[in-house]
Design a protein around this nucleic acid. Structure first.
Lengths: 224, 224
DNA sequence: ACCAAACTGACATGTGCCTGAACAGAAACG
DNA sequence: CGTTTCTGTTCAGGCACATGTCAGTTTGGT
């Protein structure tokens, strides 16, 4: 799952980011609304965490305008304990949930879990990427009509690449994502899994940048 | 039972969703009519909960057009206390029942139960899925002419898989559905039930994705 | 041409899943 | 009220497959 965190406080923000990452999700952290808009333009998010007390302009307006534009992305508001009016206004503006600061990180995880579950219940957002149809709910990929099922590790790896299609992912980053921070597996696991993904999805899907890392090949020939 | 909830208010909507879920049903929540139409196009519902005060267009028209199209799905209207005329118009337009806001969640459960009972008395919507004929009212399955009766747990599990045929259901999700949210039991109950379902319905019906979960096998062989 | 980095096929291992059986509780029956 | 039957749950043994490791080969940069 991919989360957009809009929070100007560095301490809180990094704590939240770390927690969400630890839960196995993918976070983009915007400290200002302008930044958030930029993120939103280039990526799809499954959840937005929105702090209403932001330096540049009102977060509420951001929310309202998104909703007015027909954007249904679930939004969870972060608000201080005494800002009851904010909370109500937020829900009225189209927020799905709110968290009262200071909140427990465990609580955050729990709410995230709820969103994941709710999200999983909806009709599947289906992504199309370079000839592949990605069914996130089914955790499978359709390639020329054939359904390809990925194993757990393969999926995590593919999802990581897929969620940031343009980005170059170093082997260290990918390793970190597969083996949450402990297991310093000193082997070529990533290379092996990249190979397995290529075998299943097509060799042209993943590009190697020697000495740096991997990335999804940009929807090359889909137009050609 | 599968319910379509059409309600734009987040607070009320989530409360209703949670209640229905706790009652052991399956909810899709649309916040707008357009969304509701989309849901309706891809799934069959046993009950529609319709709020008449929606942002985009009149809920009444939605109801009338459904009825005009021959759709017999029971519709329960959610209406504010003072909108008596709406209530009457709703019933005239083909609604089966109504709930006056603010309503008690227990009341909601009771009405749902009533619908379930009424529904059970009606000629059953019969689903056909990969060689099986599914009789939702009788909680039984016809396989090659033979009637197979499922027990309560087996049925809940099978129904869950069946209602979202393409989706991968993790063991945690299935457990949550069988034992509404408490039981942190570390046991292999789900595995056992999956096994029993397979024995009854055919081993090929349910697919295991190791480390992730289960899903109904897409009737690919029906083409072969 | 040389070296480093990446690819690939093969294999050992552990773990996640399956299954049969046994047990406990509840319901059905006399 | 006791017995039987059915449903739900637990457990242990076994198996298969995903996983991680490595050796040998290929690729690409300089």
């Amino acid at each position: 799952m991919r989360v957009l965190l809009i929070e100007d406080d560095s301490l809180l923000g990094s704590a939240v980011r770390d927690q969400i990452t630890a839960d196995g999700h993918c976070v983009d952290w915007a400290k200002r609304l302008a930044e958030a808009e930029a993120f939103r333009d280039v990526a799809h998010y499954d959840l937005i965490l929105l702090d209403l007390m932001l330096p540049d302009g009102r977060g509420l307006e951001f929310l309202r305008s998104r909703r007015a534009a027909g954007d249904q992305t679930p939004v969870m508001i972060l608000t201080a304990r005494d800002q009851v009016s904010d909370r109500i206004a937020g829900l009225n503006a189209g927020a799905d949930d709110y968290l009262v600061k200071p909140f427990d990180l465990a609580e955050l995880s729990a709410r995230l879990g709820a969103v994941v579950r709710r999200y999983a219940g909806n009709p599947n957002p289906v992504l199309v990427l370079g000839g592949l149809t990605i069914d996130t709910a089914a955790r499978s990929v359709l390639k020329a009509g054939r359904r390809i099922t990925l194993t757990a590790r393969e999926w995590v790896l593919f999802e990581t690449l897929m969620l940031r299609p343009t980005m170059l992912h170093s082997k260290a980053q990918l390793e970190e994502r597969l083996y949450s921070f402990e297991a310093e597996v000193e082997s070529n696991t990533i290379e092996v899994y990249i190979g397995r993904l290529r075998k299943k999805l097509g060799h042209e899907m993943i590009e190697t940048v020697r000495g740096i890392g991997y990335r999804l090949r940009q929807s090359e020939s889909s137009e050609a």
